[in-house]
Structure formats: structure tokens, C-alpha cells
Design a binder for these strands. Sequence first.
RNA 1: GGUGAGGUGGGUGAGUGGCUGAAACCACCGGUUUGCUAAACCGGCGUACCUUGAAAGGGGUACCGCGGGUUCGAAUCCCGCCCUCACCGCCA
Length: 426
Amino acid sequence: MLQISFIRANQERVLEGLKTRNFRDDDLQLVQQAVELDDQRKHLQKEHDDLLARANQLAKAIGELYKSGQRDEAETKKAEVAELKTKTKTLHEQLQNSETALVDLLLKIPNVPHPSVPAGASDEDNEVRQDWTQPLPELDGEALPHWDLAKKYNLIDFELGAKITGSGFPLFRGQGSRLQRALINFFLDEARRAGYEEIVPPLLVNESTARATGQLPDKEGQMYYVEKDDLYLIPTAEVPITNILRDVILEEKDFPIKMTGYTPCFRREAGAYGKDVRGLNRVHQFDKVEIVQATLPEQSYATLDSMVAQIEQLLQKLELPYRILRLCGGDLGFTSALTFDFEVYSAAQKRWLEVSSVSNFETFQSNRLRLRYRDENRKTQLAHTLNGSALALARIIAALLENNQTADGIRIPSVLQPYTGFNMIS
RNA sequence: GGUGAGGUGGGUGAGUGGCUGAAACCACCGGUUUGCUAAACCGGCGUACCUUGAAAGGGGUACCGCGGGUUCGAAUCCCGCCCUCACCGCCA
């Protein structure tokens, strides 16, 4: 959520941002409406506070009058307070309605894209940076997609997952399980070496938490919900880890905050269909190591670059063909100012699979989190937050299996071998 | 799941109807003193919103877990909820 004060001061920029995101003309009026609602809110607040101030004065006076025995005088003033109170009550309701209306409106206004975000309507318009310099791997006719490889080597059992839970809940076994565990440990170790504190967070979160990182109300339908206890299963470790910083005021010297965590991620993926959902391409439960940072505003873009570099390194070490996309306005997430997606090439499927997304949210997230710091004048300012996957496992496994298949089995990248304890799946 | 105790500022903790946005102490920041450090002493030290001001600053409102209520007036009384701790039950 953008701050209304920011919108007031930067109306043109916000409008430009909406255009970059292909908002329609009638949506552009949101900005004007927000300012008007805020005017109304301020006006009501002034009126409301003035009445309360008067009532407070009277209450004090009544106390004095009682002490000095002037009962009649006190009774007169009591009547006056009662009148004020009625008015205040009405105003209070109006004020609350006005505040709610303003927040509802602000929730519809997305983050302002960074100037480098290309205009564009859909993922077709993303700016692609091809980082894999060698020719993309070509597999011969025998090459199998990962779901067939998983069956051939008994690594993943989709049917058993479906039996136990339902489709989209794969069951890993044997060398498949060990590969999974190896990747998690490898990613966590790399993050730790890069200076991130490792966190093991809760996997279910309450409503306040889901709200603070923006899963509610935007993505309510995407989360599994435990009605009995009013808890949500996390769709990403970003949610609990970022909420560590909710309602926190930091000092400048505390930055940067760097945290990482491995968690399973649960997503309902309502509406997904077709070839996208085959095998590990799109599942309801997958594992991911997430990296989260909070920085001073002036450092956040340098930090974003460093996060991109770190993720890039992971893919290089895994020897996977990858490319980096700068998301265009139409594809950019609602809360992000700038996002880079990482995709790895799946040789058997002959398509790119998204394995990471790194974003700078600037103050959009910290505003809802109320994550602040004291600047040199001791004034509180919103910090910037960033996060990224480093990395999402399911699709990495898909790509590893497919790209590294040989007649003798599936080759394990050397960097992973100390973690797996084997160099070949056979 | 049951019973009991409790939730006050960064921390400890006082406060049972007006003099309390909140004592005291600790921590922290600034200063005095001082070979250095320490000690001592003095001062400062919450957040959000509204308003005024060029700014520094001034004025107002709200906040003592959250939400309601009683009252002229609530941290303090009442109701509901949440959370923490202890014990019992169950249990990896």
C-alpha cells in the first residue's frame, strides 16, 4: 500500500506508474479519488478532535466545580458535554468510514514501477537477458520429460501423492528425496555464506501476518485456510519471515537486515490448467529457500542487484541454462517496483520454467508492515524491503533431471555431490 | 481440553476514577567534571494522525494487549476476544 502522503506529493508519478501497468482510464481516477477522500478524512478529523478537546476541557472544569461545591454549575456543564458526546459519536463513525474507504481505495493502487520497467501488456513484453552463452542443450529422441524420469528411477511418485492427499502433492522417495534435501541444504549454506541469518519460521500464520505482507486481501483464494483455528498455510517463507519486522522501528546502523529460510510452500493454484500443471511444473506443495532483506531507501537498488547476482551464481553452480527477465509493467506484481524473474531451460519440455523472482518493494510493503527506522533527525521513515527465491525447488529438480539425463543415468552437478552423497542417479 | 495468574514505555516495574502520556530504576543519547576509562552530577529520551509554521518549533486528538460499555471524566470499573505464564490432561 502506498502512503497517501506520497500519493498527494507525487500524483503525476503515480499516474505514470498506473499507465506503465496498463491501467484503464477509469482506474486512473483512483488517484484523484484517494486525494479527495483524504481531504474529507482530514476535515472530519479536525472537527472530531476539536469537539473532543472541548469536552476534555469541560470534564476538567466539572471536576473543579465539584471540589468547590458548585453543583448547579457542574450540572449545566454536564448537559453540555452530553450534547458534545452525541455529536462526537456521529463524527467518529463518519471518520472511521472515511478511513476505511480510503484504505480500501489505497489497496487498489499498485506500487509505482521503477523507471527501468518496460511498458508492456503481458509476459510477452518482458525484457529478456539471455545469460546462457552456450547453445541450449539438445536431447536426442530418447530424452524423457522429468515425470517419466521420475518414474523410471523411482524418484517421485505423483500417484502416491494423489492417493495420500490429491493431485499436485508429489511424493519424493529414495534418491529423489535425497536430491531434494541436498538442494535445500546447498541453498541454505549459500545464503548463509552471503550473510543471511537462517530462520525456521512457523508454516501457518494468522490473519494479521497475512495482511501485513499483502496476501490478504489480494490473494485470499490462493492460500489454504484452516477455518477452525483461523490460520493460513504459508504460500512462501516471505510471509512469516518478513513479518518478523512488523511494527518494528530500527536504527540506521541495524541495516541491512538479511534473513533466509527454507519452508514448504502451499498454494491452491485455483484456475491453473493444461500443460502447466504436468509433473513438477505447478504443484500445490513445493519447497523453497527464500531470501529477505530490509534496507535503507538509498541502498535498496544496489541490494536488488546483489540479490540477483547471488541467485545467478546458484544457477551457474548448478550448471543450468538460465535467463533473467526484467518484468514489464503488465507482468509486474502489484506490490513490486522492480522484479527480475529467473527461468531455467527444461530441455525435454523445450520450455523455460520460472524458478525465482526477486523484487524490490521499496516502501510498499513496509508501509503495511509499519517497518520504520529513525533517520539522522530522529524522525521515523519507512524502510525498503526486498525478497527473492533462492531457489524454488520443484522446477529446479525438473530441469536437473531432464538436462542431465544420460544413457547411464542422471548426472548430479559436482557442487551438489557432497550434499547428495552420490554422483549419479541410476 | 480444564484450572489459576497475568498483559503498563526499549527493559524491570509503580500506579484501583480527575493532580498520569504515565513514578522510580536500568538501558540509551547529549553535557559537566576528569591523565584515559569508569564513577558522580545535570539534561533529554514513545508512536500515529490533525493543525499551525519557510523552518526550528508550537497547539490539539488518540494510544497502558485488542474491541465495546459505564461515567462529566477510565491505565484504573464492567463485558467480549486475543495472547503469555504455571499446573493438570493428552501427546511427537
